[in-house]
């Protein structure tokens, strides 16, 4: 059992195990389930993520409000032309993160990682890396990626928060980005300590990010926040793999995120009262979606 990233890394180093293995063993210990059942459950979550990504990059997705959809596909088409500024692997991950959130916004099936609104970063990063890494990751490694991401998310959820209403977007997409960065390091063969540094670098760069959804919907800017979250995860993972360390320990970055969230005004915590939601266009979109005053009071369905 671990409560901090420090303990998690120490457990892994002591027995020369991967973070994913520590997470699996902890799950066995706390739930009483067996390894096969736990692995199979995570594997079926992976199937859900894969289906959502495939839908998002191939179908014409559109949300009920019409605010989001189609951008993942647009980015794939751009990628196919072969002229990118930030690189194919990077944009592939970005596109697959958006795919997941576009499917979420359009009421498709997704796996919350750690929430529905931040569900794109982890699978986007994973499926982007699957195209990039040679040899391609095995199914076993892909499932383990999710256990590693889950282990870091577990620490954040219990010591800080994964709720936008409690801690802003830094708690949702910020956490997801840190989780994805840490898991990417393990998948690429990095050490548990490097995973912790990747998480610290990624989350450290998300501190202060507010939750300001236009019209209160999980769409704008959520889809693009997940997109850029995936790119940040990859960059942070690369930095850690290069041997770059976070000067502030990962647990202290998590603690800082928690304290920043506590100091955040309510307007920036999923109330749609501040930030992009409170711009002239943001307010206009809300009126457009919910009726003249944004306060449609009675609706009857046939």
């Amino acid at each position: 059992m671990f409560q901090t990233v420090k303990e998690l890394v120490e457990l892994a180093e002591k027995d020369q195990k991967k973070i994913s293995e520590i997470m699996i063993e902890t799950e066995i210990e706390t739930t009483g389930s067996n390894r096969e059942a736990i692995f199979a459950k995570m594997s079926s979550n992976l199937d859900v993520m894969e289906d959502a990504v495939k839908r998002g990059i191939s179908e014409n997705i559109r949300s009920h409000s019409g605010l989001t959809g189609g951008d993942a596909k647009r980015l794939q088409a751009y990628l196919a032309e072969g002229q990118t500024l930030s690189g194919v692997a990077m944009l592939d991950a970005v596109s697959k993160a958006m795919a997941t959130n576009e499917v979420n916004a359009a009421m498709g099936v997704i796996c919350a990682t750690p929430t529905a609104g931040s569900a794109g970063v982890v699978p986007g990063t994973l499926f982007g890396l699957c195209e990039r890494l040679k040899p391609a990751p095995t199914r076993d490694q892909m499932v383990r990626f999710l256990f590693t991401a889950g282990a870091f998310g577990f620490v954040v959820a219990n010591n800080a928060s994964i709720s936008g209403a409690a801690g802003g977007c830094q708690a949702e997409v910020g956490s997801a980005t840190g989780m994805a960065a840490a898991a990417a390091v393990e998948l690429a063969g990095g050490s548990p300590q490097q995973s912790a540094h990747a998480m610290a670098i990624a989350l450290g760069n998300m501190l202060g990010l507010i939750c300001d959804p236009v019209a209160g919907l999980v769409e704008v800017p959520c889809v693009k926040r997940n997109a850029v979250g995936a790119s940040t995860a990859l960059v942070a993972a690369d930095m850690a793999l290069a041997g770059i360390e976070s000067r502030i320990p990962c647990d202290e970055v998590i603690e800082a995120m928690y304290r920043v969230g506590r100091m955040m005004p309510a307007a920036f915590r999923e109330t749609a009262q501040g930030g992009l939601a409170d711009t002239p266009r943001g307010r206009a979109l809300k009126r457009q979606i919910f009726g003249h005053d944004g306060q449609k009071s009675v609706t009857k369905h046939p």
């Binding site: 459950k41 979550n45 796996c111 529905a116 889950g150 577990f154 999980v218």
Partner: peptide, 15 residues
Amino acid sequence: SVFDIIGPVMIGPSS
């Protein structure tokens, strides 16, 4: 549980 973090599987957009 790790499945509180990686999960649940659901129809979007909001848990």
